[in-house]
Amino acid sequence: MRAAATGSGRAGRYFEPGQLYGGSGAGAIDRLSACLTIALGFAVLPSLLMCVSASPTGPSARRSARHAVVLFALFSVIMTVLGMGAAALVGGANIAANSGQGYSAIFLLFDTVSEQEGLLFTAFACAMFITALGSVAGLMLAAAASVSHDVHAVSMRRGRVGQEQEVRMTRWMLATVGLLCVMLAVVLHGWSVLFFASFAAAVAASTILPALLYALFWKGLTRRGLLCTLYGGAACCLAAQLWNPTVSGTPQSLLPRLDFAVLPFENIAIVTVPAGFLIGWLTSRFGRGQAPLDYAGTERRILTGTR
């Protein structure tokens, strides 16, 4: 830690709070919003894992969630150690000179500590490529299946689609989504897209978290309120992200030459999380013609793992 403070170029202030967002009132709010984004965004990931994993029973799903919590905690610790290691061994000036956003810090770290020239660097690059390939493949399959089944087969055709037609549509959508991803990667190459990570965590904290807490602890939740919580929270996140400094207004923004930022802080969870809860409460409390969800049945399934 002392070596990291020395290598950063700010030995006397390296561990002082407030350097990233400043010491003003807006900086304090931004720092609090960042904490909310990380804490609440990661808190709902085990529940998401239980939904998408192939756990056959309730106990196995809860066991998978416990493993996920441990893995997320280890990941956070490892990232902290690697960040301080890069500051100590590579130096803040060298990292900034190579990449203003710090994207290459871990590559520079592994290249520095590697005993054989480029060996650890190459191994890490291959690991990143395999991880990215697996993640992108899974996301593409999920997106194509959702569009072909949920949008085309269920919403547009009202279930009047055969299995072969649905599989054919999935293949076409897979090719379309893949081509779109490649085009976006070419266009956005070199842009500052680091904010997408915090944006994804903010969306999870503003949509999944209110939906889970309302479904678990509020008997007045309706189907309309649940849907409005999900869609309304996501819409609030998108609007807040577009009008904050990560998109325009600063040299590190996605569009550095434009300035249409309205919100003064970069992290949006402090606005969008209360908005998600408020939207769900208002639409459930004052919506007409909507019966509450089966709270007792949901509680029984959660506690016992039965359907």
Rank of each mutant, 00 (worst) to 15 (best):
L133V: 07
L133Y: 14
G134L: 15
G134N: 15
G134Y: 12
S135M: 12
S135Q: 04
S135T: 11
A137P: 04
A137L: 15
A137E: 14
A137C: 13
A137Q: 14
A137D: 14
A137H: 11
G138N: 13
G138A: 10
G138H: 12
L139E: 10
L139S: 11
M140Y: 05
M140L: 15
M140C: 10
M140R: 10
L141W: 09
A142I: 07
A142F: 06
A142P: 03
A143I: 08
A143Y: 10
A143P: 06
A144P: 06
S146K: 03
S146R: 07
V147I: 15
V147P: 04
V147R: 07
S148K: 06
S148W: 03
S148C: 00
S148F: 02
S148M: 04
S148A: 14
H149R: 11
H149L: 11
H149T: 04
H149I: 03
H149D: 14
H149S: 09
D150C: 02
V151D: 03
V151G: 06
V151W: 09
V151N: 09
H152V: 15
H152K: 11
H152T: 09
H152F: 15
H152E: 13
A153G: 07
A153L: 12
V154N: 05
V154L: 11
S155L: 14
S155H: 09
S155K: 08
M156P: 01
M156A: 05
M156S: 01
R157L: 06
R157T: 02
G159R: 11
G159M: 07
G159T: 06
G159K: 08
R160G: 03
R160I: 02
V161M: 10
V161E: 09
G162L: 00
G162H: 03
Q163C: 04
Q163S: 11
E164A: 07
E164G: 10
E164Q: 11
Q165F: 02
Q165T: 00
Q165P: 02
Q165M: 00
Q165S: 10
Q165G: 13
E166W: 02
E166P: 00
E166A: 03
E166V: 00
V167G: 05
R168N: 01
R168E: 02
M169A: 12
T170N: 06
T170I: 04
T170K: 02
T170C: 07
T170R: 08
R171P: 01
R171W: 04
R171V: 01
R171Q: 03
R171E: 02
R171T: 00
R171C: 01
W172M: 10
W172H: 07
W172Q: 09
W172V: 10
M173T: 00
M173G: 02
L174I: 01
L174T: 01
L174A: 06
A175W: 13
T176F: 14
T176A: 15
T176C: 15
T176K: 13
T176H: 13
V177P: 06
V177D: 06
G178F: 10
G178T: 07
G178R: 07
L179E: 03
L179P: 00
L179D: 02
L179N: 03
L179S: 12
L180S: 14
L180P: 08
L180V: 13
L180C: 14
L180T: 09
L180R: 00
C181S: 13
C181Y: 15
